[in-house]
Design a protein around this nucleic acid. Sequence first.
DNA 1: TTGCAATATGCAACTCAGTTGCATATAATA
DNA 2: TATTATATGCAACTGAGTTGCATATTGCAA
Lengths: 145, 145
Amino acid sequence: MQTLALLIQVLKKNKIRMTTIRKALLTLLLLRAQPMSVYDFQNQLKKQGVLAHKVTLYRDIELLCKLGIMREVSFTDGFRRYELEEDHHHHAVCTACKQVFEINDPQLEKAVFSLERRTKKLHHFASLSHHLEFLGVCTRCVKRS
Amino acid sequence: MQTLALLIQVLKKNKIRMTTIRKALLTLLLLRAQPMSVYDFQNQLKKQGVLAHKVTLYRDIELLCKLGIMREVSFTDGFRRYELEEDHHHHAVCTACKQVFEINDPQLEKAVFSLERRTKKLHHFASLSHHLEFLGVCTRCVKRS
DNA sequence: TTGCAATATGCAACTCAGTTGCATATAATA
DNA sequence: TATTATATGCAACTGAGTTGCATATTGCAA
């Protein structure tokens, strides 16, 4: 489990300055369970009164990725989203509200990794990683319709 | 198994005109096993001396998708690719040469569908579809490096 | 085979996520 | 508090995909 204090330490160690935007970003990351796009971040920060230009967010996010704090995940809807670098997991994307839900299911995890090994062998492909995404409609959007 | 004659029939039935570009598109679709982007199509057609504007290709592809002849698949590299509408399958993307390889593996298929059912139940998500993509390096690119 | 009308194509100009160069603002250190 | 390196914002760009409109081509009828 990560904490804000721990993440701030990582920046200090790497001689990276702590700014309003970066602190707000880290706090948000720890709070939210879903991977977020740059525009999600921007909107959430705005609600807290922190105005940040998209360029700044792209650059800060890149930095945090390089430091191993967060990770980039590309989705098939054309958006790159970002999440805390913790254990690998998969996602369910609501095609109605565009929200992304994390799926933490160790059994699913195991199954997909064995599929990756299988694919590697059968197709002589030096597989490095995989991306599994479920597309559908979340409970809230189902109720709404 | 689809044939060119059969696909041409589909267009005729729907009162859609047969043009040089459309015929070349259909022929290419039947020939190539990999899903292709608009730019892949454009390059392949150019090799056969058929010059087509990207706008035309986007529109023709949309048409063929609506007719149920081809299907759009979005990839995490930000490109939409298109393939013959046949049985569902997954893909392995070579991060070096950007080529996409189809994976036809009934066992993998079964496994992923059961994962989809599982996710649906566990996360109360009205899952409609999924996207599984393996990222790695193909045999040719491994040899090259 | 030709002429006509409807459809197909190409062009220009757009949208929108993400990127880059550069000028200005701000954080950390002395 | 002054200095200086780094962080931020702005403007202008890139590249996939889209749209409106003028022109070219197809399929059909005479």
